[in-house]
């Protein structure tokens, strides 16, 4: 009985120790777009999870690969089966920070920031550093970014037969609005 109380207390204190304001979303937006003269391919995910620690600027994203929606059903099937292998690697995550984060700097005007950290997808983790903007309005952080991703960096094989149809670098658009996280 005593141990239970102590452990409960310990748990409570442990959380208390790291309790600062955190902001999160479960319906963030990520789009990727591949453009070639032969074919344009786009996929959208409206169920991205993201969390930001206001005290430290630490930032994390998580996206289910199967939640990416394509215009053509067969593209979605091939994306999951042949390229991302989503049964084996169901999630893509980013864990990093907004460099030089200072909560007091942000306001209604978009402010350019640099985000650094590890992007993991298809079982491969890679250190990235990308530019984006941060807006703070109505108690929400809005994070936006456009970045280029090379599938080959993540060991995503593109066979010669379709090489002409898939861009060397994919444009990834990120748009998330983070609301305060209440436990």
């Amino acid at each position: 009985m005593k141990t239970t109380i102590i452990s409960a207390l310990a748990l409570f204190l442990a959380f208390g120790a790291s309790a600062q304001d955190k902001y999160f979303t479960r319906d963030g937006y990520i789009k990727f777009y591949s453009s070639t003269p032969i074919e344009d391919i786009a996929a959208e995910n409206h169920k991205v999870t993201a969390i930001l620690d206001e005290a430290t600027g630490k930032l994390e994203f998580s996206a289910l690969i199967k939640s990416f929606e394509f215009e053509k059903a067969l593209m979605e099937e091939h994306f999951n089966e042949n390229y991302m292998e989503s049964n084996t690697f169901p999630k893509s995550t980013f864990k990093g920070e907004i460099v030089g984060f200072d909560a007091s700097k942000f306001g209604a005007k978009p402010m350019e920031v640099t985000v650094k950290g590890m992007l993991e997808m298809h079982g491969v983790a890679k250190e990235i550093s990308e530019k984006g903007t941060v807006t703070k309005q109505d108690g929400k952080y809005v994070l936006k970014s456009k970045m280029m991703v090379n599938p080959e960096d993540y060991k995503i094989e593109i066979p010669n037969t379709v090489r002409e149809k898939i861009a060397k670098e994919l444009e990834v658009t990120i748009d998330v609005a983070l609301a305060i996280f209440k436990k």
């Binding site: 310990a10 204190l13 442990a14 959380f15 120790a17 955190k22 969390i51 994390e60």
Partner: peptide, 15 residues
């Protein structure tokens, strides 16, 4: 014993 691991995971993986 409880404090250390909890605070570590809380920092490591906010998700």
């Amino acid at each position: 014993a409880f404090f250390i691991p909890t605070s570590l995971t809380a920092q490591d993986d906010m998700l």
